[in-house]
């Protein structure tokens, strides 16, 4: 474990907590894409298949349970909770996430570390996580006023993977044979997708104006 990875995990945890806080306290999911939340639930479900077979550490297991539990409960809230679901913007959140899942699955069948079920599912989860934010970014472009919690949620979600990139660089230089192109390329693409969001988020923070993405 290194400081970059710990910072990344904590930032990721914060993003999930910010979202749960928003949904649980003000019972609103305005501006949040259910499609992205469903994709994240699928990412964790396919990433953590080994949660009960390969024990890494208490920290690792607890974090996996938190990410699995929170992502599925957020989807449940947005689909089932009578108050929360009312604030869900179904008309605007129209990204057909099936067109993200299928290419990622096909790519995972071709590009993987080993052609076994677990390895293919693992590669699939990395490719899917890289693009899972797209429905959310599209929704942000459409909804004019982005509330602070939603902006913070997306920012933290993007920042966590950026920390992971520093973690991979650190591990590459400190651990022999630590080379994982699938993880690195997926993580880089994922972070680049946030580039313009980061740009507008930073500017809105600098000029102290409401976050507003150009149409």
């Amino acid at each position: 474990m290194n400081i970059f990875r710990l910072a990344g995990d904590m930032t990721h945890l914060m993003s999930v907590l910010v979202l749960l806080l928003k949904i649980h306290t003000i019972k609103s999911c305005a501006g949040i894409s259910l499609k992205t939340q469903e994709l994240y639930a699928l990412v964790f479900a396919t990433r953590y298949l080994d949660i009960f077979t390969d024990f890494i550490s208490v920290y690792n297991t607890i974090m996996k349970l938190i990410f699995l539990g929170s992502s599925f409960s957020i989807v449940w809230y947005m689909r089932r909770h009578k108050l929360v679901r009312r604030s869900y913007d179904k008309e605007q959140d129209t990204f057909r996430h099936f067109f993200l899942v299928l290419p990622c699955l096909l790519l995972a069948l071709v590009m993987n570390e080993k052609f076994t079920f677990k390895e293919v599912m693992w590669a699939f989860s990395l490719y899917l996580e890289a693009v899972a934010i797209l429905p959310q970014l599209v929704l942000l472009q459409r909804t004019k006023n982005i509330d602070n919690l939603t902006g913070q949620y997306v920012f933290l979600l993007g920042a966590y993977r950026a920390f992971y990139i520093f973690n991979w660089i650190y591990r590459y230089f400190t651990e022999p044979h630590y080379v994982h192109w699938i993880t690195w390329i997926s993580g880089l693409v994922q972070t680049l997708l946030y580039a313009d969001f980061f740009y507008y988020y930073f500017n809105s923070w600098k000029n102290n104006v409401k976050l507003h993405l150009p149409a």
Binding site: H12, D54, E113, N167
Partner: peptide
């Protein structure tokens, strides 16, 4: 070892 690398990252 043929075991695929241990996925120690989240």
């Amino acid at each position: 070892a043929d075991e695929s690398f241990v996925k120690d990252e989240l």
